[in-house]
Design a protein around this nucleic acid. Structure first.
Lengths: 201, 201
DNA sequence: GGGCTCTCTTACGTCAACGTGAGATTTGAG
DNA sequence: CTCAAATCTCACGTTGACGTAAGAGAGCCC
């Protein structure tokens, strides 16, 4: 159990930013000059917000999955809320897709490419090279989509299989002993389920 | 690489069966008396059929996930094709659902309960106890279904998110540089995909 | 009966993804 | 300034799910 709620802003001044963490100049907070750390979050807060341990965050940094937006003079890590979202996405890819961190690194780098595009295509420093990068990221995304769709299809098939077994199970329950209350109470309908197995009374 | 194809039947005679491996008396092969091993498969064949290693099969046995249908006098393991199917299901639960072997043991034991039901409900040794077991297995199945449905829903949501990103990516590709062949060839449509992202020409 | 293949047990190795201190240092509040 | 809380950097430990190697049987074929 944590002693107190560590989710609060890091106030004060003096922080070295990472390159490219300047926020695309469309945020409500007024830019109070470089070197401040308004809106930055410390590692404990990120950990509790993303529901991971601090060790996990440092480990993700070690393997190149995340990187603090800035550092305190003493070396403390400072993150943005996009970093929190990033960590959440990492966990989602782990849980949902069963990817390991190496795969996730590839996937998220493609996603980041698409995201960073928004800012970069305006600058248009080198149109041809930019387009190549975008095309590459698009290919990676298509690949990801293919894998996700495959897995989703397999899960739907498995779900149907389980439903069939449940149905047969209920048939047995009713035919085997008609004078019973049809077993224990059915659990709640699962979220996002397009076809709950109906249980005739 | 394996030296030769080990998928063939174990012929000969003399094998100690496991209890309950007598096959529900509705198979095409004539029962040639107990103690034979017709239709039984050795471990190497099971391994190649289920696409796992022999070590994995022994490990699954060690943790109580599978158990050979019979043994050769020298100690060799003999399996049925249902065992192969069982191993395949174990792998599916690992890959698809990300379950660990402990969870899989719980799930498959429930599935087995439902399956064994077919034979046992006929014998009707103790109707009340049987019904209780069925009800318990049904509850476990509902729980499994809930988890599968939840995950399937989350995957559909993630799929939609990826699709949105792909669409934006293609918009950029066309608006950013109209004189290009729209990037590399799109990958093949994924199997079981209900909504492939259309790529306007 | 020699050789080849398959399988057995035993036991140590591995790899990812963190967990868990230890001890030093920094930070923020009062 | 003071001090508790938060964070830092090593660095070793853990856990699940096997991989891998060694040496010994067991079965089959010519």
């Amino acid at each position: 159990m944590r002693s107190r709620d560590p989710v609060r802003r890091a106030d004060g001044a003096g922080a070295t930013l990472r390159p490219g963490a300047g926020s695309a100049a469309d945020e409500p907070v007024p830019p109070a000059g470089p070197g401040d750390r308004r809106g930055l979050i410390r590692i404990g807060a990120v950990a509790s917000l993303a529901d991971v341990s601090e060790r996990t965050l440092r480990y993700y940094e070690e393997v190149g999955l995340i990187s603090p937006a800035a550092h305190q003079p003493g070396g403390g890590r400072l993150y943005t809320e996009q970093d929190v979202a990033r960590v959440r996405r990492i966990r989602e890819l782990q849980r949902l897709m069963g990817f390991n961190l190496e795969e996730i690194r590839a996937v998220t780098s493609a996603l980041d490419e698409v995201e960073a595009l928004r800012d970069r295509i305006r600058g248009t420093s080198d149109a041809a090279a930019q387009l190549d990068m975008v095309a590459e990221a698009a290919a990676a995304l298509e690949d990801l989509r293919s894998r996700v769709a495959t897995k989703a299809g397999q899960m739907q098939a498995f779900l149907a299989e389980v439903d069939a077994k449940i149905a047969r199970c209920h048939v047995r329950l009713r035919s085997g002993h008609p004078g019973r209350g049809a077993g224990p109470a059915p659990p709640q309908a699962a979220a996002g389920s397009p076809r709950p197995p109906r249980q005739p009374r």
